[in-house]
Design a protein around this nucleic acid. Structure first.
Lengths: 237, 237
DNA sequence: GCGCGCCAGTTTGTATACAATTTACCACCC
DNA sequence: GGGTGGTAAATTGTATACAAACTGGCGCGC
Protein backbone atom coordinates (compact mmCIF):
# COMPACT_ATOMS: atom_id res chain seq x y z
CA UNK A 1 0.00 0.00 0.00
CA UNK A 2 2.91 2.31 0.39
CA UNK A 3 2.88 4.75 -2.47
CA UNK A 4 6.53 5.30 -3.00
CA UNK A 5 7.33 6.91 -6.26
CA UNK A 6 10.95 6.80 -7.26
CA UNK A 7 11.27 10.04 -9.09
CA UNK A 8 14.65 10.01 -10.65
CA UNK A 9 17.75 8.10 -9.74
CA UNK A 10 18.85 11.04 -7.62
CA UNK A 11 15.72 10.83 -5.51
CA UNK A 12 14.89 13.91 -3.50
CA UNK A 13 18.34 15.13 -2.65
CA UNK A 14 18.54 17.41 -5.66
CA UNK A 15 15.80 19.40 -7.24
CA UNK A 16 17.93 22.32 -8.19
CA UNK A 17 18.45 25.67 -6.63
CA UNK A 18 14.76 26.49 -6.77
CA UNK A 19 14.02 23.60 -4.45
CA UNK A 20 16.71 24.77 -2.05
CA UNK A 21 15.26 28.23 -2.09
CA UNK A 22 11.78 26.83 -1.52
CA UNK A 23 12.92 24.91 1.52
CA UNK A 24 14.67 27.92 2.91
CA UNK A 25 11.74 30.24 2.48
CA UNK A 26 9.25 27.65 3.67
CA UNK A 27 11.23 26.99 6.82
CA UNK A 28 11.62 30.70 7.45
CA UNK A 29 7.89 31.24 7.21
CA UNK A 30 6.87 28.07 9.02
CA UNK A 31 9.21 28.91 11.88
CA UNK A 32 7.92 32.47 11.90
CA UNK A 33 11.29 34.05 11.30
CA UNK A 34 9.43 35.94 8.59
CA UNK A 35 6.28 37.09 10.36
CA UNK A 36 2.94 37.52 8.58
CA UNK A 37 2.85 40.62 6.45
CA UNK A 38 6.56 40.70 5.70
CA UNK A 39 7.08 41.94 2.19
CA UNK A 40 9.06 39.69 -0.13
CA UNK A 41 10.49 41.79 -2.98
CA UNK A 42 11.72 39.72 -5.85
CA UNK A 43 15.08 41.37 -6.24
CA UNK A 44 15.92 40.93 -2.58
CA UNK A 45 15.20 37.21 -2.75
CA UNK A 46 17.00 37.08 -6.07
CA UNK A 47 20.16 38.52 -4.53
CA UNK A 48 19.81 36.51 -1.34
CA UNK A 49 19.66 33.14 -3.03
CA UNK A 50 21.77 34.04 -6.04
CA UNK A 51 19.18 33.09 -8.60
CA UNK A 52 17.30 35.05 -11.20
CA UNK A 53 13.90 36.53 -10.61
CA UNK A 54 12.47 33.81 -12.81
CA UNK A 55 13.11 31.19 -10.15
CA UNK A 56 12.10 33.54 -7.38
CA UNK A 57 8.73 34.00 -9.02
CA UNK A 58 8.35 30.28 -9.50
CA UNK A 59 8.88 29.65 -5.81
CA UNK A 60 6.62 32.51 -4.76
CA UNK A 61 3.83 31.27 -7.01
CA UNK A 62 4.10 27.85 -5.46
CA UNK A 63 3.94 29.19 -1.94
CA UNK A 64 1.00 31.35 -2.89
CA UNK A 65 -0.82 28.20 -3.97
CA UNK A 66 -0.08 26.76 -0.55
CA UNK A 67 -1.50 29.80 1.16
CA UNK A 68 1.77 30.82 2.77
CA UNK A 69 2.31 33.85 0.57
CA UNK A 70 -0.07 36.40 -0.85
CA UNK A 71 0.63 37.78 -4.30
CA UNK A 72 -1.30 40.84 -5.34
CA UNK A 73 -1.13 41.83 -8.94
CA UNK A 74 1.56 44.39 -9.63
CA UNK A 75 2.06 44.72 -5.92
CA UNK A 76 4.39 41.91 -5.12
CA UNK A 77 4.40 39.14 -2.57
CA UNK A 78 4.27 39.09 1.18
CA UNK A 79 3.95 36.51 3.90
CA UNK A 80 0.27 35.72 4.22
CA UNK A 81 -1.82 37.27 6.97
CA UNK A 82 -4.67 34.82 7.44
CA UNK A 83 -8.02 36.38 8.19
CA UNK A 84 -10.21 35.25 11.05
CA UNK A 85 -12.53 33.51 8.64
CA UNK A 86 -9.66 31.72 7.01
CA UNK A 87 -8.43 30.66 10.44
CA UNK A 88 -11.74 29.07 11.30
CA UNK A 89 -11.88 27.35 7.93
CA UNK A 90 -8.40 25.95 8.15
CA UNK A 91 -8.92 24.47 11.59
CA UNK A 92 -12.32 23.08 10.68
CA UNK A 93 -10.79 21.44 7.62
CA UNK A 94 -7.90 20.10 9.62
CA UNK A 95 -10.29 18.60 12.12
CA UNK A 96 -12.11 16.70 9.42
CA UNK A 97 -8.94 15.45 7.78
CA UNK A 98 -7.00 14.59 10.90
CA UNK A 99 -9.92 13.04 12.74
CA UNK A 100 -10.79 11.06 9.65
CA UNK A 101 -7.25 9.83 9.30
CA UNK A 102 -7.06 8.96 12.97
CA UNK A 103 -10.30 7.03 12.80
CA UNK A 104 -8.87 4.66 10.22
CA UNK A 105 -5.38 4.34 11.59
CA UNK A 106 -4.26 0.71 11.48
CA UNK A 107 -3.54 -0.53 14.96
CA UNK A 108 -1.38 -1.14 16.74
CA UNK A 109 0.84 1.83 15.99
CA UNK A 110 4.50 0.79 15.76
CA UNK A 111 6.38 1.40 18.98
CA UNK A 112 9.02 3.42 17.21
CA UNK A 113 6.40 5.83 15.93
CA UNK A 114 4.83 6.20 19.34
CA UNK A 115 8.23 6.96 20.75
CA UNK A 116 8.95 9.57 18.09
CA UNK A 117 5.62 11.23 18.78
CA UNK A 118 6.28 11.28 22.50
CA UNK A 119 9.65 12.84 21.85
CA UNK A 120 8.01 15.62 19.86
CA UNK A 121 5.57 16.22 22.68
CA UNK A 122 8.44 16.38 25.14
CA UNK A 123 10.30 18.96 23.07
CA UNK A 124 7.17 21.00 22.63
CA UNK A 125 6.65 20.87 26.36
CA UNK A 126 10.17 22.12 26.92
CA UNK A 127 9.61 24.97 24.51
CA UNK A 128 6.42 25.96 26.30
CA UNK A 129 8.19 25.97 29.65
CA UNK A 130 11.04 28.02 28.25
CA UNK A 131 8.57 30.51 26.87
CA UNK A 132 9.74 29.76 23.35
CA UNK A 133 6.38 30.30 21.75
CA UNK A 134 7.64 30.04 18.19
CA UNK A 135 9.36 26.71 18.75
CA UNK A 136 6.25 25.40 20.46
CA UNK A 137 4.12 26.28 17.46
CA UNK A 138 6.51 24.54 15.11
CA UNK A 139 6.82 21.41 17.23
CA UNK A 140 3.08 21.22 17.66
CA UNK A 141 2.76 21.31 13.89
CA UNK A 142 5.38 18.64 13.48
CA UNK A 143 3.41 16.44 15.87
CA UNK A 144 0.21 16.78 13.88
CA UNK A 145 2.00 16.13 10.60
CA UNK A 146 3.70 13.03 11.89
CA UNK A 147 0.46 11.75 13.32
CA UNK A 148 -1.37 12.28 10.05
CA UNK A 149 1.43 10.59 8.15
CA UNK A 150 0.91 7.38 10.12
CA UNK A 151 -2.02 6.45 7.95
CA UNK A 152 0.24 6.09 4.93
CA UNK A 153 -1.95 8.26 2.73
CA UNK A 154 0.55 10.52 0.99
CA UNK A 155 -2.13 12.69 -0.59
CA UNK A 156 -3.76 13.36 2.75
CA UNK A 157 -0.44 13.92 4.45
CA UNK A 158 0.50 16.54 1.90
CA UNK A 159 -2.73 18.41 2.54
CA UNK A 160 -2.24 18.27 6.28
CA UNK A 161 1.30 19.52 5.89
CA UNK A 162 0.08 22.53 3.97
CA UNK A 163 -2.71 23.28 6.41
CA UNK A 164 -0.35 22.97 9.35
CA UNK A 165 2.04 25.46 7.81
CA UNK A 166 -0.83 27.88 7.36
CA UNK A 167 -1.86 27.21 10.94
CA UNK A 168 1.53 28.41 12.01
CA UNK A 169 0.79 31.79 10.44
CA UNK A 170 -2.68 31.75 11.94
CA UNK A 171 -1.39 31.15 15.44
CA UNK A 172 1.18 33.88 15.00
CA UNK A 173 -1.54 36.30 13.92
CA UNK A 174 -4.47 35.31 16.08
CA UNK A 175 -3.00 33.17 18.83
CA UNK A 176 -3.11 34.44 22.36
CA UNK A 177 0.31 34.86 23.95
CA UNK A 178 -0.41 32.30 26.63
CA UNK A 179 -1.36 28.76 25.79
CA UNK A 180 -0.73 29.62 22.19
CA UNK A 181 -0.77 26.13 20.91
CA UNK A 182 -2.35 22.97 22.03
CA UNK A 183 -1.93 22.26 25.70
CA UNK A 184 0.78 19.67 25.85
CA UNK A 185 -1.37 17.39 27.89
CA UNK A 186 -3.79 17.11 25.02
CA UNK A 187 -1.17 15.81 22.64
CA UNK A 188 0.07 13.39 25.22
CA UNK A 189 -3.45 12.23 25.89
CA UNK A 190 -3.95 11.40 22.23
CA UNK A 191 -0.80 9.33 22.16
CA UNK A 192 -1.80 7.49 25.29
CA UNK A 193 -5.19 6.64 23.86
CA UNK A 194 -3.57 5.46 20.64
CA UNK A 195 -1.07 3.33 22.50
CA UNK A 196 -3.94 1.64 24.33
CA UNK A 197 -5.74 1.05 21.07
CA UNK A 198 -8.67 3.26 21.99
CA UNK A 199 -8.96 4.79 18.59
CA UNK A 200 -12.45 6.18 18.87
CA UNK A 201 -11.66 7.94 22.10
CA UNK A 202 -8.59 9.37 20.40
CA UNK A 203 -10.72 10.76 17.60
CA UNK A 204 -13.12 12.37 20.03
CA UNK A 205 -10.25 13.85 21.93
CA UNK A 206 -8.66 15.16 18.75
CA UNK A 207 -11.91 16.85 17.77
CA UNK A 208 -12.12 18.50 21.15
CA UNK A 209 -8.49 19.46 20.80
CA UNK A 210 -9.27 21.44 17.66
CA UNK A 211 -12.24 22.95 19.40
CA UNK A 212 -9.92 24.21 22.10
CA UNK A 213 -7.50 25.67 19.60
CA UNK A 214 -10.23 27.51 17.73
CA UNK A 215 -11.68 28.85 20.93
CA UNK A 216 -8.22 29.91 22.06
CA UNK A 217 -7.82 32.26 19.14
CA UNK A 218 -8.56 35.87 19.78
CA UNK A 219 -10.53 37.41 17.00
CA UNK A 220 -9.03 40.81 17.28
CA UNK A 221 -10.42 42.43 14.21
CA UNK A 222 -8.41 42.55 11.08
CA UNK A 223 -7.11 45.72 9.44
CA UNK A 224 -10.62 46.92 8.67
CA UNK A 225 -11.14 46.30 4.99
CA UNK A 226 -12.44 49.71 4.02
CA UNK A 227 -13.44 48.63 0.56
CA UNK A 228 -15.80 45.85 1.55
CA UNK A 229 -17.24 47.98 4.32
CA UNK A 230 -18.11 50.72 1.90
CA UNK A 231 -19.31 48.36 -0.76
CA UNK A 232 -21.41 46.52 1.79
CA UNK A 233 -23.73 49.38 1.09
CA UNK A 234 -25.84 49.72 4.17
CA UNK A 235 -28.12 52.68 3.64
CA UNK A 236 -26.50 55.95 4.68
CA UNK A 237 -29.13 57.38 7.08
CA UNK B 1 -10.60 58.80 -9.14
CA UNK B 2 -11.13 55.47 -10.80
CA UNK B 3 -11.47 53.37 -7.69
CA UNK B 4 -14.79 52.14 -8.92
CA UNK B 5 -13.27 48.98 -10.29
CA UNK B 6 -13.94 46.11 -7.93
CA UNK B 7 -10.40 44.82 -7.64
CA UNK B 8 -10.87 42.25 -4.94
CA UNK B 9 -7.73 40.60 -3.63
CA UNK B 10 -8.62 37.09 -4.65
CA UNK B 11 -9.70 38.21 -8.04
CA UNK B 12 -11.96 35.61 -9.53
CA UNK B 13 -13.22 37.86 -12.22
CA UNK B 14 -10.09 38.59 -14.16
CA UNK B 15 -6.42 38.06 -13.81
CA UNK B 16 -5.12 38.46 -17.29
CA UNK B 17 -4.35 36.07 -20.05
CA UNK B 18 -2.69 33.57 -17.80
CA UNK B 19 -5.93 33.11 -15.90
CA UNK B 20 -7.81 32.64 -19.16
CA UNK B 21 -5.31 30.05 -20.24
CA UNK B 22 -5.57 28.30 -16.89
CA UNK B 23 -9.31 28.05 -17.20
CA UNK B 24 -9.07 26.74 -20.70
CA UNK B 25 -6.53 24.08 -19.86
CA UNK B 26 -8.26 23.14 -16.65
CA UNK B 27 -11.58 22.70 -18.38
CA UNK B 28 -9.97 20.68 -21.16
CA UNK B 29 -8.40 18.32 -18.65
CA UNK B 30 -11.36 18.16 -16.29
CA UNK B 31 -13.67 17.37 -19.17
CA UNK B 32 -11.20 14.79 -20.46
CA UNK B 33 -10.77 16.41 -23.84
CA UNK B 34 -7.08 16.04 -23.04
CA UNK B 35 -6.84 12.46 -21.80
CA UNK B 36 -4.29 11.36 -19.19
CA UNK B 37 -0.82 11.07 -20.62
CA UNK B 38 -1.28 13.73 -23.27
CA UNK B 39 1.96 15.62 -23.70
CA UNK B 40 1.79 19.36 -23.25
CA UNK B 41 4.77 20.94 -25.05
CA UNK B 42 5.33 24.50 -24.03
CA UNK B 43 5.65 25.93 -27.51
CA UNK B 44 2.39 24.38 -28.63
CA UNK B 45 0.53 25.92 -25.71
CA UNK B 46 2.43 29.13 -26.29
CA UNK B 47 1.22 29.34 -29.86
CA UNK B 48 -2.28 28.16 -29.02
CA UNK B 49 -2.93 30.81 -26.44
CA UNK B 50 -0.76 33.50 -27.93
CA UNK B 51 1.35 34.01 -24.85
CA UNK B 52 5.01 33.53 -24.15
CA UNK B 53 6.42 30.38 -22.65
CA UNK B 54 6.86 32.26 -19.41
CA UNK B 55 3.13 32.30 -18.81
CA UNK B 56 2.72 28.78 -20.10
CA UNK B 57 5.19 27.55 -17.53
CA UNK B 58 3.45 29.50 -14.80
CA UNK B 59 0.15 27.82 -15.59
CA UNK B 60 1.71 24.38 -15.93
CA UNK B 61 3.46 24.74 -12.59
CA UNK B 62 0.19 25.64 -10.96
CA UNK B 63 -1.62 22.69 -12.43
CA UNK B 64 1.22 20.43 -11.40
CA UNK B 65 0.68 21.59 -7.82
CA UNK B 66 -2.95 20.63 -8.22
CA UNK B 67 -2.02 17.18 -9.42
CA UNK B 68 -3.55 17.61 -12.85
CA UNK B 69 -0.26 17.79 -14.69
CA UNK B 70 3.01 15.97 -14.22
CA UNK B 71 6.23 17.83 -14.88
CA UNK B 72 9.38 15.80 -15.14
CA UNK B 73 12.63 17.65 -15.14
CA UNK B 74 13.90 18.40 -18.63
CA UNK B 75 11.15 16.23 -20.00
CA UNK B 76 8.22 18.55 -20.11
CA UNK B 77 4.65 18.36 -18.91
CA UNK B 78 1.83 15.97 -19.60
CA UNK B 79 -1.65 15.38 -18.32
CA UNK B 80 -1.30 13.38 -15.11
CA UNK B 81 -1.86 9.63 -15.13
CA UNK B 82 -2.85 8.86 -11.56
CA UNK B 83 -1.53 5.59 -10.20
CA UNK B 84 -3.74 3.08 -8.47
CA UNK B 85 -2.30 4.06 -5.11
CA UNK B 86 -2.98 7.71 -5.80
CA UNK B 87 -6.52 6.85 -6.80
CA UNK B 88 -7.19 5.11 -3.50
CA UNK B 89 -5.64 7.98 -1.59
CA UNK B 90 -7.64 10.63 -3.38
CA UNK B 91 -10.96 8.92 -2.80
CA UNK B 92 -10.14 8.14 0.81
CA UNK B 93 -9.26 11.78 1.37
CA UNK B 94 -12.39 12.93 -0.39
CA UNK B 95 -14.48 10.67 1.78
CA UNK B 96 -13.08 12.24 4.92
CA UNK B 97 -13.50 15.78 3.68
CA UNK B 98 -16.92 15.42 2.09
CA UNK B 99 -18.39 13.29 4.84
CA UNK B 100 -17.01 15.69 7.41
CA UNK B 101 -18.49 18.65 5.62
CA UNK B 102 -21.82 16.89 5.22
CA UNK B 103 -21.93 16.00 8.90
CA UNK B 104 -21.81 19.67 9.87
CA UNK B 105 -24.03 21.05 7.18
CA UNK B 106 -26.44 23.60 8.61
CA UNK B 107 -30.01 22.46 8.08
CA UNK B 108 -32.30 22.96 6.46
CA UNK B 109 -30.60 23.27 3.11
CA UNK B 110 -32.09 26.14 1.07
CA UNK B 111 -34.65 24.94 -1.42
CA UNK B 112 -32.88 26.63 -4.30
CA UNK B 113 -29.75 24.67 -3.55
CA UNK B 114 -31.62 21.40 -3.35
CA UNK B 115 -33.18 22.18 -6.67
CA UNK B 116 -29.85 22.98 -8.29
CA UNK B 117 -28.42 19.72 -6.98
CA UNK B 118 -31.36 17.76 -8.31
CA UNK B 119 -30.89 19.40 -11.67
CA UNK B 120 -27.26 18.28 -11.74
CA UNK B 121 -28.34 14.75 -10.92
CA UNK B 122 -30.89 14.85 -13.69
CA UNK B 123 -28.32 15.99 -16.23
CA UNK B 124 -25.89 13.34 -15.06
CA UNK B 125 -28.60 10.78 -15.42
CA UNK B 126 -29.27 11.91 -18.96
CA UNK B 127 -25.61 11.66 -19.80
CA UNK B 128 -25.46 8.14 -18.43
CA UNK B 129 -28.46 7.09 -20.48
CA UNK B 130 -26.99 8.65 -23.60
CA UNK B 131 -23.77 6.81 -23.01
CA UNK B 132 -21.91 10.08 -22.63
CA UNK B 133 -19.44 8.79 -20.10
CA UNK B 134 -17.29 11.91 -20.13
CA UNK B 135 -20.18 14.25 -19.43
CA UNK B 136 -21.37 11.97 -16.65
CA UNK B 137 -17.99 12.13 -14.96
CA UNK B 138 -17.95 15.90 -15.15
CA UNK B 139 -21.50 16.32 -13.89
CA UNK B 140 -20.87 13.91 -11.06
CA UNK B 141 -17.89 16.02 -10.07
CA UNK B 142 -19.94 19.20 -10.26
CA UNK B 143 -22.47 17.62 -7.93
CA UNK B 144 -19.88 16.77 -5.31
CA UNK B 145 -18.32 20.22 -5.54
CA UNK B 146 -21.62 21.98 -5.14
CA UNK B 147 -22.55 19.77 -2.23
CA UNK B 148 -19.25 20.46 -0.49
CA UNK B 149 -19.64 24.18 -1.11
CA UNK B 150 -22.89 24.23 0.86
CA UNK B 151 -20.99 24.30 4.11
CA UNK B 152 -19.59 27.71 3.29
CA UNK B 153 -16.04 26.70 4.07
CA UNK B 154 -14.06 28.16 1.15
CA UNK B 155 -10.83 26.48 2.13
CA UNK B 156 -12.46 23.08 2.21
CA UNK B 157 -14.34 23.72 -1.00
CA UNK B 158 -11.12 24.57 -2.80
CA UNK B 159 -9.56 21.31 -1.69
CA UNK B 160 -12.60 19.33 -2.78
CA UNK B 161 -12.57 21.07 -6.11
CA UNK B 162 -8.96 20.04 -6.68
CA UNK B 163 -9.54 16.47 -5.57
CA UNK B 164 -12.61 16.18 -7.80
CA UNK B 165 -10.64 17.34 -10.81
CA UNK B 166 -8.04 14.70 -10.07
CA UNK B 167 -10.83 12.18 -9.65
CA UNK B 168 -11.89 12.92 -13.18
CA UNK B 169 -8.49 11.78 -14.41
CA UNK B 170 -8.64 8.79 -12.11
CA UNK B 171 -11.99 7.66 -13.46
CA UNK B 172 -10.76 8.13 -17.00
CA UNK B 173 -7.74 5.97 -16.25
CA UNK B 174 -9.12 3.33 -13.90
CA UNK B 175 -12.87 3.57 -14.25
CA UNK B 176 -14.73 0.68 -15.74
CA UNK B 177 -16.66 1.53 -18.89
CA UNK B 178 -19.99 0.71 -17.31
CA UNK B 179 -21.18 2.38 -14.16
CA UNK B 180 -18.16 4.61 -14.43
CA UNK B 181 -19.28 7.14 -11.97
CA UNK B 182 -21.55 7.06 -9.04
CA UNK B 183 -24.83 5.37 -9.72
CA UNK B 184 -27.26 8.16 -10.17
CA UNK B 185 -29.55 6.74 -7.56
CA UNK B 186 -26.87 7.26 -4.95
CA UNK B 187 -26.62 10.95 -5.57
CA UNK B 188 -30.35 11.27 -5.55
CA UNK B 189 -30.56 9.32 -2.33
CA UNK B 190 -28.15 11.73 -0.66
CA UNK B 191 -30.26 14.69 -1.70
CA UNK B 192 -33.42 13.05 -0.47
CA UNK B 193 -31.90 12.34 2.91
CA UNK B 194 -30.66 15.91 3.13
CA UNK B 195 -34.04 17.31 2.18
CA UNK B 196 -35.60 15.29 4.99
CA UNK B 197 -33.00 16.54 7.42
CA UNK B 198 -31.52 13.11 8.02
CA UNK B 199 -27.97 14.29 8.02
CA UNK B 200 -26.35 11.31 9.71
CA UNK B 201 -27.96 8.90 7.29
CA UNK B 202 -26.69 11.09 4.49
CA UNK B 203 -23.15 10.90 5.82
CA UNK B 204 -23.33 7.14 6.07
CA UNK B 205 -24.69 6.92 2.56
CA UNK B 206 -21.98 9.21 1.27
CA UNK B 207 -19.30 7.04 2.86
CA UNK B 208 -20.77 3.99 1.25
CA UNK B 209 -20.98 5.89 -2.00
CA UNK B 210 -17.20 6.39 -1.96
CA UNK B 211 -16.76 2.78 -1.06
CA UNK B 212 -18.70 1.84 -4.19
CA UNK B 213 -16.64 4.15 -6.36
CA UNK B 214 -13.37 2.77 -5.05
CA UNK B 215 -14.54 -0.78 -5.53
CA UNK B 216 -15.74 0.05 -9.01
CA UNK B 217 -12.25 0.91 -10.17
CA UNK B 218 -10.36 -1.74 -12.02
CA UNK B 219 -6.82 -2.04 -10.81
CA UNK B 220 -5.40 -4.01 -13.63
CA UNK B 221 -2.76 -2.75 -15.92
CA UNK B 222 -0.34 -0.88 -13.77
CA UNK B 223 1.89 1.28 -15.95
CA UNK B 224 4.62 -1.32 -15.75
CA UNK B 225 6.93 0.74 -13.61
CA UNK B 226 10.09 -1.01 -14.66
CA UNK B 227 12.31 1.11 -12.47
CA UNK B 228 10.70 0.28 -9.15
CA UNK B 229 10.30 -3.34 -10.16
CA UNK B 230 14.00 -3.67 -10.78
CA UNK B 231 15.07 -1.58 -7.85
CA UNK B 232 12.54 -3.14 -5.52
CA UNK B 233 14.45 -6.37 -5.91
CA UNK B 234 11.68 -8.65 -4.73
CA UNK B 235 12.62 -11.26 -7.28
CA UNK B 236 9.54 -13.41 -6.76
CA UNK B 237 11.05 -16.75 -7.62
C1' DG C 1 23.56 -7.89 -39.04
C1' DC C 2 23.83 -5.93 -34.58
C1' DG C 3 25.32 -2.71 -31.31
C1' DC C 4 27.64 1.35 -29.91
C1' DG C 5 28.59 6.10 -30.11
C1' DC C 6 28.33 10.47 -32.11
C1' DC C 7 25.84 14.35 -33.96
C1' DA C 8 21.82 17.25 -35.19
C1' DG C 9 17.25 18.68 -33.89
C1' DT C 10 14.08 19.56 -30.53
C1' DT C 11 12.51 20.78 -25.98
C1' DT C 12 13.14 22.58 -21.58
C1' DG C 13 15.79 25.56 -17.87
C1' DT C 14 17.50 29.94 -16.61
C1' DA C 15 18.77 34.61 -17.16
C1' DT C 16 18.21 39.06 -18.83
C1' DA C 17 15.93 42.88 -21.29
C1' DC C 18 12.13 45.70 -21.84
C1' DA C 19 7.25 47.27 -20.99
C1' DA C 20 3.57 48.30 -17.77
C1' DT C 21 2.00 49.43 -13.41
C1' DT C 22 2.33 51.16 -8.92
C1' DT C 23 4.26 54.14 -5.34
C1' DA C 24 6.18 58.22 -3.47
C1' DC C 25 7.47 62.66 -3.64
C1' DC C 26 7.20 67.40 -4.79
C1' DA C 27 5.52 71.36 -6.99
C1' DC C 28 1.39 73.73 -7.68
C1' DC C 29 -3.18 75.60 -7.10
C1' DC C 30 -7.16 76.59 -4.29
C1' DG D 1 -2.08 74.92 4.82
C1' DG D 2 -4.22 71.09 2.71
C1' DG D 3 -5.39 68.77 -1.12
C1' DT D 4 -4.56 67.77 -6.09
C1' DG D 5 -2.04 66.47 -9.97
C1' DG D 6 1.94 65.12 -12.26
C1' DT D 7 6.36 63.22 -12.80
C1' DA D 8 10.25 60.10 -11.41
C1' DA D 9 11.83 56.01 -9.14
C1' DA D 10 11.05 51.48 -8.00
C1' DT D 11 8.86 47.13 -8.62
C1' DT D 12 6.47 43.75 -11.04
C1' DG D 13 4.66 41.50 -15.69
C1' DT D 14 5.89 39.56 -19.94
C1' DA D 15 8.74 38.36 -23.71
C1' DT D 16 12.84 36.87 -25.73
C1' DA D 17 17.59 35.14 -25.91
C1' DC D 18 20.76 31.84 -24.78
C1' DA D 19 22.42 27.52 -22.42
C1' DA D 20 21.69 22.79 -21.08
C1' DA D 21 19.50 18.49 -21.54
C1' DC D 22 17.08 14.99 -23.84
C1' DT D 23 15.50 12.41 -28.27
C1' DG D 24 16.13 10.21 -32.39
C1' DG D 25 18.68 8.92 -36.29
C1' DC D 26 22.71 7.91 -38.88
C1' DG D 27 27.20 6.01 -39.60
C1' DC D 28 30.89 3.33 -38.17
C1' DG D 29 33.06 -0.66 -36.25
C1' DC D 30 32.77 -5.35 -34.66
Amino acid sequence: MSAQKPDLPTADSDGGRDEAMYRGLHAAIYELRLPPGTRLPEDVLSNTYGVSRTLVRKVLQRMAMEGLVEIRRNRGAQVAEPSADEAREVFATRRMLECGALAELPLPVPTAELQALRELVRQEDDAQLNGDRVAAIRLSGDFHIRLAALGGNATLTKLVRELVARSSLILATHGSPISVTCRHSEHEQIIDLLARGERQAGVAWMAEHFEHITRGLRWREQPLDLFSVLKGGDTPT
